[in-house]
């Protein structure tokens, strides 16, 4: 049996908003450790992995590992009906049923909404995600997640919004990270310098560079990842020319959301 409770729907609402526009289905793995979610986009360019440890929930009972594929668009629709302070209960029975029940209960007026979701196939996930060696990454950038979101918005507004294939080039050189994109009639570059931690100790931009690195990514993916900002104040971007880039948001003490994305390479 699986029975979970969260006294505030916000966390789960934010998780769904952070993944549902790019990923249509996800695999949810519940175990004694917590919830591990994985999803891959249809072009197989990006993968998202989420961990919410059991401690993230107000009540967590999972006496047997349970893996289920769920449609994220349907879930996001249901969660948009939930208020931030609704109490969420997630329940699944033994193997014979292939549905999971999400219940939203309003603490103020006692209204209860019940959604049953059927399991779906997930095309390729879950995958085993190794911890790639640190030495493989040429550069790591840590910055406030709101700043990263602002950068993505600026780049998107400059690039032709109708073009799904706008490319952003992220390059790291010494104590600077540059975001570059090309619009219809010009280019746009946003330069971020490493900030002095003394001035704003809570919102530093930190750049660790082993070697110069410059990689091209799809802007619409990056834009979508930036929605992780509702889950964490900081984002860490790890760049390597040999591995998928990682955009990581730590969720308080209870987990993380990591987006893996392949850079575009010259043909």
């Amino acid at each position: 049996i699986l029975e979970l409770r969260l006294v505030q729907a916000t966390l789960f609402k934010n998780v769904l908003e952070a993944i549902s526009d790019l990923f249509s289905k996800a695999n949810f793995d519940f175990s004694g450790t917590g919830l591990e979610l994985q999803a891959m986009d249809t072009s197989h360019v990006a993968l998202v992995a989420l961990l919410l440890r059991a401690e993230a929930f107000n009540h967590y009972l999972c006496d047997r590992d349970l893996s289920m594929g769920l449609n994220l668009a349907d879930m996001a629709k249901a969660f948009r009906c939930a208020n931030n302070d609704d109490i969420i209960t997630i329940k699944a029975e033994e193997d014979w049923s292939d549905t999971v029940t999400f219940t939203f209960e309003s603490p103020e007026d006692g209204e209860i909404s019940i959604f049953d979701f059927d399991f779906v196939g997930t095309n390729g996930v879950p995958l085993e995600i190794p911890e790639f060696p640190e030495s493989e990454y040429q550069a790591k950038v840590r910055m406030p997640s709101a700043k990263f979101m602002r950068i993505c918005k600026k780049l998107s507004s400059f690039g032709d919004s109708g073009d799904r294939d706008t490319v952003v080039i992220i390059s790291v050189d010494k104590e600077c990270v540059n975001f570059f994109t090309r619009g219809k009639t010009g280019t746009s570059t946003i330069v971020c310098r490493q900030t002095q931690t003394v001035d704003k100790p809570k919102e530093p931009t930190l750049i660790e560079m082993k070697e110069q690195v410059s990689l091209a990514f799809d802007l619409r993916y990056m834009n979508s990842f930036s929605k992780g900002s509702t889950l964490s104040d900081q984002v860490t971007i790890s760049l390597s020319s040999n591995l998928p880039a990682v955009f990581e948001y730590k969720i308080a003490e209870t987990g993380y959301i990591r987006y893996y994305m392949l850079p575009r390479i010259e043909e």
């Binding site: 197989h44 392949l262 850079p263 575009r264």
Partner: peptide, 14 residues
């Protein structure tokens, strides 16, 4: 032009 590989090649099937 540019192309992209398949991210699955970096991970193993569970």
């Amino acid at each position: 032009g540019t192309k992209q590989g398949n991210i699955m090649s970096f991970f193993k099937k569970v």
